[in-house]
Simulated scan of single mutants.
Amino acid sequence: MAYVDLLSAIHKSTQRDYLARVNDPDFPKPKAAELAKKWGYDYWDGDRKICYGGYRYMEGRWEKVARAMAEQYGIKPGDKILDVGCGKAFLLYDFTKVVPGVEVYGLDVSEYAIENAKEEVKDRLQVGNATNLPFPDDHFDFVFSINTLHNLHCYDLDKALREIERVSKQNKYVCVESYRNETEKANLLYWQVTCEAFNTPEEWEWWFRNTGYTGDHSFIYFE
């Protein structure tokens, strides 16, 4: 298990006003969170004050992540890869551009996301939960989950990490939100609308050890 940073460049490219987010008069944090946790239109394509504010495909944005993953884990044509919490599957689509012939699969709890996913890979996506992956043991050459597992309560987080370990032959990667100090903790609390697992890096590593997760990981910090 190693720390492999594949996401911070994309995360840091977004400008955030933490105080404006938590104090918004139209969508104060409790209201925004209630809407976001329905995982529907408001979460993906509604007002930016709730969450993404229009989650649309941007040429090249996720391709750099797909390329970094392919190089890190030696992904080749014919390999099976799974994205747990795939959303609209923009990263999976870009994977097919970076590694033509790769077999991509995605699962997400949001029916809206799957219905509005990239058409080119939609037939490989399904609605489901990370706690019960509908695949055999050791089925995938690479399993990854980006900005998803921190949305689970502890009892479901335990199941999800064990499921990722179960369906992967070897290579696994998860990226989750975390904090290293009180400033980052406050910023995370101000910005998030769906997070349930608020863990320091040391606490996340405790989860990895105690669930038997043997893959790589990285953290998103709100600095």
Rank of each mutant, 00 (worst) to 15 (best):
A68I: 01
E63H: 02
K88G: 13
G74S: 12
R162H: 02
V104K: 12
L152N: 06
R48I: 02
Y112W: 04
A117S: 15
V121G: 12
N129T: 14
G101C: 09
F140C: 08
N147S: 15
E119T: 10
L82H: 01
E163A: 07
G85W: 10
F144I: 05
G46L: 05
S145K: 09
E115F: 01
L157K: 05
Q170P: 00
K122I: 03
C86S: 14
C154T: 13
G46W: 07
G54D: 03
H153R: 12
G60V: 11
G78F: 14
S168A: 15
H139V: 01
L157H: 10
L149Q: 00
D45T: 02
N171P: 06
K64L: 08
N116I: 04
V98T: 14
A89L: 11
K172G: 05
I146R: 13
Y55K: 09
L161A: 03
A68H: 00
I146H: 03
R56T: 12
I81E: 00
K88H: 08
Y55F: 14
D141R: 08
M58W: 04
R124E: 03
F142S: 01
N171C: 04
A130Y: 09
L125M: 07
L133R: 04
L149A: 04
R67I: 02
E165G: 07
R166M: 07
A89Y: 01
K80E: 13
Q170N: 13
L125G: 02
E119I: 07
R162G: 03
I114M: 08
D158H: 12
F140I: 11
R124I: 02
L107I: 15
S145P: 00
